[in-house]
Amino acid sequence: MDPDAPAASRRLRPVRRLDVLHRSLHEIDLGDGPVRYAVEVDTGRDWTAVLYADGAFVAEADLPARFPVPGGVIEADHGLYGVSRMHFVGADGGERRLAPARGTLEDLRGRFGRRHPRASRAIGAAAVAVLLVNLVLAAPQALELVSEVPRIAERFGTFESPVDLPWWLNASLYAAGAAAATERVLTFRRNRIVDFETIWTEG
Rank of each mutant, 00 (worst) to 15 (best):
L63E: 09
A65N: 04
F67C: 12
P68R: 06
V69Q: 03
V69L: 06
V69P: 04
V69C: 02
G71Q: 03
G72M: 14
V73S: 11
V73A: 12
V73G: 11
I74M: 07
I74R: 00
I74C: 05
E75C: 03
A76R: 06
H78S: 06
H78Y: 13
G79F: 01
L80M: 14
L80W: 12
Y81G: 05
V83A: 00
S84H: 04
S84T: 05
S84K: 01
R85P: 03
R85N: 04
M86C: 01
H87C: 08
D92H: 04
G93P: 01
G94S: 15
E95W: 08
E95M: 09
R96C: 11
R96T: 13
L98V: 05
L98D: 02
P100M: 10
P100W: 04
P100I: 07
A101F: 03
A101V: 14
R102T: 15
R102Y: 10
R102E: 15
G103R: 01
L105Y: 02
E106D: 13
E106A: 09
D107E: 07
D107T: 00
D107P: 00
R109W: 08
R109V: 12
G110R: 13
R111Y: 14
R111P: 11
F112N: 02
F112T: 00
F112A: 11
G113T: 11
H116T: 14
P117M: 08
P117R: 08
A119R: 10
A119N: 03
R121D: 06
G124S: 09
A125Q: 14
A127E: 08
A127G: 07
V128R: 06
V128M: 03
A129E: 09
V130S: 12
V130F: 10
V130Q: 10
